[in-house]
Amino acid sequence: MALSREQLAQRVAQELQDGFYVNLGIGIPTLVANYVPEGIEVMLQSENGLLGMGQFPTDEEVDADLINAGKQTVTMATGASLFDSAESFAMIRGGHVDLTVLGAFEVDCQGNIASYMIPGKLIKGMGGAMDLVAGADNIIVTMTHASKHGESKLLAECTLPLTGKGCIKKVLTDLAFLEIKEGKFHLLERAPGVSVEEIVKLTAGELVVPNHVPEMQFPT
């Protein structure tokens, strides 16, 4: 079975480490905040100028001056700090954020990522994504492995305009967890009940498959 949105978030959350500063992109990455393992502390960075993002506010707590990068109202966690956009991107571009999680339309086995623009269709802009992929060392891309029509999104070469070049090393899809190195995808784990054959069939870029590919583990 392909992973649900919640399972994708749960699997990413297993990569969190105690003391990590983390930037979560819009969509599935945002859900990761719901699955921080017990006993560890992480601090969420929101690139519009907040380190230590808390949960959504109650009706009484809503403050128009306190939003996240998705423009949703939020609260601050204990120990939060506030700053301007240049400071925020100094953290990001200076490599101070420990983990970045973001979505993508396509990735390829050179570590390129396309996530912000479909020419002729969707032109909304890159927001902070180009800064995040260029500045972070530890990035996890979350995405679906293939389109609804079964076309692979893990390619030999991205077809859409790039968000970043040679910057992606880890990809979590609804079918598999993969690493990118030496110009190849390497299969690390598969979603529960998903066969290696299915993953191979839906991966267009060169894929290295070890003899044993463990299933992802989820707490029951």
Partner: peptide, 13 residues
């Protein structure tokens, strides 16, 4: 006026 684009809340305890 301070218009809010995405008003997201959690239930009050």
């Amino acid at each position: 006026e301070k218009v809010i684009e995405q008003r997201t809340t959690r239930p009050s305890a």
